[in-house]
């Protein structure tokens, strides 16, 4: 283990001989008694068990064991409940968003809705038969979940009120086929109900058909239909109107880039207005070419 040179230097011959004695003593070292050995080993085993790391089990088993503990189960339950509440609340907020997204759909279907309104006011077979299917197609194509959800709601009162209001309105002169119920009348009536409901929910659409986009309605040849919502809803300018003015102004100063951008926005918002009021203006049309 060590070299004894440093010690040997300090030892005189007498001590060297004595060293051989004590080194000889080492050979005669006494064996310790066996007493206490078993106790030591027992204590060592207990301590070893206490020190033994818990890594003998695989991680997934330890993880599972941890997960099934009551506190973890309670925490998981709380997480599920909170998560469910969050999901439900988000779903509730999504419904108005979806209905907002259906604005475009309804605007696209504004002219058919107008026709539908005309069909409601004057039950001449040709108008109602043509309008109802087109409205339903436009509605169900883009916003089917909303419509179906609404159709599930109880809505007995609203159509009745609307019908009463409609009754109060001045009726157009009776036509030869006024009393006759055409085959398409069922569809038209359904369309009237949905249209009424949407008119109640979506004021801008109804307004748009009356004031700002009156020309669009005129272009389709249906004007009378928009009188009903006008009577019930406060008037507000349609969203396309400022854009049209902006496009006209830009066309006057020959800023075709703005004209194109604005015209595109108008087209996306209301294709009928786009066709009726944007493309028809020569200054704008020049820029769009």
């Amino acid at each position: 283990m060590t070299s004894k040179n440093d010690d040997d230097d300090a030892l005189d011959p007498m001590m060297r001989s004595m060293r051989s004695v004590w080194l000889d003593m080492r050979d005669g070292d006494a064996e310790p008694p066996a007493r206490g050995f078993a106790e030591l080993m027992a204590a060592a085993r207990v301590k070893a068990d206490a020190m033994q790391p818990e890594t003998t089990e695989p991680w997934w088993r330890r993880g599972f064991a941890m997960l099934v503990r009551p506190p973890m189960l309670a925490a998981a339950t709380v997480v599920v409940l909170v998560g469910g509440a969050v999901v439900l609340s988000q779903r509730n907020t999504e419904v108005p968003m979806r209905s907002a997204s259906t604005d475009h759909t309804l605007r696209d279907a504004e002219a058919p809705a107008g026709k539908l309104g005309a069909a409601r006011d004057s039950p001449s077979g040709a108008g109602s038969a043509a309008a109802a299917p087109s409205f339903e197609t436009a509605t169900t194509d883009h916003a089917a979940p909303v419509v179906s959800e609404r159709s599930r709601r109880p809505r007995a009162a609203a159509p009745a009120i609307v019908r009463e209001q409609v009754k109060d309105l001045p009726q157009p002169p009776a036509e030869p086929h006024a009393g006759a119920k055409l085959p398409a009348d069922d569809n038209a009536e359904r369309g009237v109900q949905i249209a009424d409901e949407q008119e109640q929910d979506l004021a801008p659409k109804a307004v748009k058909g009356t004031d700002g986009t009156g020309r669009a309605s005129q272009s389709d040849g249906v004007v009378a239909s928009d009188k009903v919502p006008t009577a019930r809803r406060p008037v507000s300018p349609p969203p396309t109107e400022p854009l049209i003015k902006q496009a006209e102004a830009a066309a006057k100063r020959s800023d075709c880039a703005v004209v194109k951008t604005t015209a595109e926005r108008i087209r996306k918002l209301d294709s009928n207005v786009y066709k009726a009021r944007v493309v028809t203006q020569p200054a704008i049309a020049r820029c769009l070419k």
Binding site: A48, M51, Q52
Partner: peptide, 10 residues
């Protein structure tokens, strides 16, 4: 022994 091996302590 720290890892639980009693034989090592022995």
């Amino acid at each position: 022994y720290q890892k639980g091996e009693v034989r090592a302590f022995e």
